[in-house]
Amino acid sequence: MAKVYEFLANGFEEIEGLAPVDILRRGGVDIKTVSITGTEWVETSHGITIKADLKFEDIQSFEDADMLLLPGGMPGSSHLNEHEGVRQALIAQHKAGKRIGAICAAPMILASTGILDGKKATCYPGFEQYFSDSTEYTATLFQEDGNVITGEGPAATLPYAYKILSYFAGDGITGELQKGMMYTHLMESK
């Protein structure tokens, strides 16, 4: 079974943090939320308090991760960017050629670690200012480039999360889940 960790900091965007967890768990992926607050409790950008599965300090290594995820939101993305343990985990994940995902403001973290250098990426409009000159800002709903997927913002969360699920569960299971969650109906009504 695939193993995914999602880092959570105070001030993360609720939908970007929780919808991928919901979708991946429904699809059979072992995803754990990891608080960087020093406790299991994390407050979202809109004042909702949630309990993470794990505290960052309780994990010896993220070497078993098939993917690391970063939700956006402010100041959550800034807090994640300031956490040296998160930064080192992302760098190690990237060097190992394993998957990384970041949405909304969080791609700035990948940019600051050099992970987006030479890649195509998207983010919440305005956060592309953190990209290096070698990163191509696409302004698309989500962008895949090699082992990295980035998402634009809250509205991108569902297609971004379904794409991530497809990496681990395949298109068949992902498509069935989209049907069951009425996502295909939403897309047909456009």
Rank of each mutant, 00 (worst) to 15 (best):
M1C: 09
E6C: 14
N10L: 12
N10C: 10
N10Q: 15
G11L: 03
E13V: 05
E13C: 15
I15N: 15
E16R: 01
G17W: 04
L24R: 11
R26E: 13
G28N: 04
K32F: 11
K32S: 06
T37I: 12
E40D: 15
V42L: 04
T44Q: 00
H46W: 06
I48G: 06
A52T: 07
D53F: 15
D53R: 10
D58V: 07
F62P: 15
F62E: 01
E63A: 15
A65F: 07
D66I: 15
L68W: 04
L69Q: 07
L69G: 03
P71M: 13
M74D: 11
G76H: 06
S78T: 00
S78C: 03
S78Q: 13
N81I: 00
E82F: 02
E82I: 00
E84A: 06
G85E: 11
R87G: 11
A89E: 02
L90R: 10
I91M: 09
A92L: 11
Q93F: 14
R99Y: 10
R99I: 05
R99V: 02
I100K: 07
I100R: 02
A105N: 02
A106N: 13
A106Q: 12
P107V: 09
M108E: 08
L110V: 13
G114L: 10
G114K: 11
I115L: 02
G118C: 11
K119I: 12
A121E: 12
G126Y: 01
E136S: 06
Y137G: 05
A139T: 01
T150H: 14
P154A: 10
P154W: 03
P154T: 04
A156G: 14
T157M: 09
K163Q: 10
I164Q: 14
L165G: 11
F168A: 08
G170R: 11
G170M: 13
G172T: 12
I173D: 03
Q178T: 07
M182W: 03
Y183Q: 11
M187R: 14
M187F: 14
